[in-house]
Amino acid sequence: MSVLVLTLIILLGAFLAGLIGSLTGLGGGVIIIPLLTLVLKVDIHYAIGASLVSVIATSSGSAAAYVKEGISNIRVGMFLEIATTVGAVIGAFIAVYAETNMIAVIFGLVLVLSAALSFKKHAEIIASKPNRLAALLKLNSSYPTAAGEINYTVQHVPGGFFMMMIAGVLSGLLGIGSGALKVLAMDNIMKLPFKVSTTTSNFMIGVTAAASAGVYFERGYIDPGLAMPVMLGVLAGAFAGSKILVKAQTKSLRVVFAIVITFLAIQMIYNGLNGKI
């Protein structure tokens, strides 16, 4: 296989990853890394580096669209970025010394978890209980809905902060955005409204990925021949996805995606345990 053929295959795969990632909200990294490692037999360190680049691209590229809706909470985002960036640096540091097959097994487990989380029901309960720490950090805010502005308060700040640190470690270790875990921290633990959680999480993903991308870049884990088709493909796919977003079809798409992801996860774990990755 020549470089040209490999580049075209990755470009196509990355386009699909970006497209499906943006339609399901799971992000492209979870498909890119299995594609590169399982199908194209690329070393997982290179795959993580390329994926991180695409994570920054999609997060930054879609931020403009989300911001227009005016529902992300930049103070919650900025405060929690302390946790995610510290985690990301720790994760990238672990990745430098971790065996490739161990990374593959952890990746598989996180993949299953992400797929499961995408099916969680989101009951929209607006918290209004006052919380001292949240008030001190000015995290409480309001967001626009069809029924007008709704005020919400933020709960369990330390718990959310800790969960965010774990999300950061996984992001730095595996080269994914770990958006599912970020949403879990804000939605389930801190009781932010679901829409606020998802948009704020998207805003944070790029910063988290940039923190670990610096380490990967310096280590020489970001290869231009791979980063180029991955970044361009995912960006084009995510852009196409944002144009064709049809609400009615996302549910069945999500089911298909979860099945694919679970299959990929089993492959990653199996190959990791057998030392074939």
Partner: peptide, 24 residues
Amino acid sequence: LYLFQHGRAEPHYHTFSGEPKDLK
């Protein structure tokens, strides 16, 4: 430009060797 310069070469991603100094 990369595809023009290296398009016909053989890829080398199976084993990790890190990027050369001038690319990091």
